[in-house]
Amino acid sequence: MKIELATEKDYKYIVERDRHIPETLVRTKINANEIFIIRDAEKEIGWMRYGYFWDSIPFMNMIWIDEEHRGQGVGKEIVLYWEEIMRKKGFELIMTSTQSNEDAQHFYRKIGYRDAGCLLLETQPLEVILTKNL
Results as ranks from 00 to 15, higher is better:
95 M>Q: 11
93 L>C: 06
17 R>W: 04
111 I>V: 06
38 I>W: 01
2 K>S: 11
116 A>L: 04
129 I>G: 00
133 N>M: 11
6 A>I: 00
122 E>K: 15
98 T>N: 05
18 D>W: 05
98 T>W: 01
68 E>I: 10
24 T>V: 10
48 M>R: 02
37 I>K: 01
74 V>T: 10
57 I>K: 03
52 Y>A: 08
89 K>T: 08
37 I>R: 00
55 D>V: 12
31 N>K: 14
87 R>P: 08
90 G>I: 10
40 D>A: 07
27 R>H: 08
83 E>C: 05
31 N>H: 09
69 H>L: 07
34 E>K: 06
78 I>L: 02
90 G>D: 09
1 M>P: 01
102 E>L: 13
87 R>A: 11
95 M>G: 07
42 E>D: 15
86 M>Y: 03
6 A>C: 04
108 Y>Q: 06
8 E>K: 13
89 K>S: 12
26 V>E: 03
76 K>F: 02
83 E>G: 03
48 M>G: 06
105 Q>E: 08
81 Y>S: 03
117 G>K: 08
97 S>F: 02
63 I>M: 04
31 N>P: 04
42 E>K: 14
62 M>V: 10
37 I>E: 00
88 K>I: 08
76 K>I: 07
68 E>P: 05
93 L>E: 07
24 T>N: 11
55 D>I: 12
22 P>K: 11
44 E>N: 15
105 Q>H: 12
105 Q>P: 05
13 Y>C: 02
94 I>S: 02
6 A>W: 00
109 R>D: 07
42 E>P: 02
107 F>Q: 06
55 D>H: 09
69 H>A: 06
106 H>Q: 12
20 H>P: 05
77 E>A: 14
21 I>F: 06
54 W>F: 15
100 S>L: 12
35 I>K: 00
54 W>G: 08
94 I>Q: 01
52 Y>W: 09
23 E>V: 06
67 E>G: 02
11 Y>W: 11
28 T>P: 03
3 I>G: 04
112 G>A: 02
124 Q>G: 07
116 A>S: 12
102 E>S: 14
21 I>T: 15
99 Q>V: 11
56 S>A: 13
81 Y>G: 03
40 D>H: 11
64 W>T: 09
24 T>R: 10
59 F>D: 15
111 I>W: 09
45 I>H: 00
100 S>T: 10
43 K>N: 09
102 E>A: 13
43 K>G: 01
131 T>Q: 09
18 D>V: 04
46 G>C: 05
37 I>T: 00
122 E>A: 13
112 G>K: 01
128 V>Y: 02
116 A>P: 07
1 M>C: 03
21 I>L: 14
53 F>E: 09
133 N>S: 12
42 E>S: 13
91 F>W: 12
110 K>H: 11
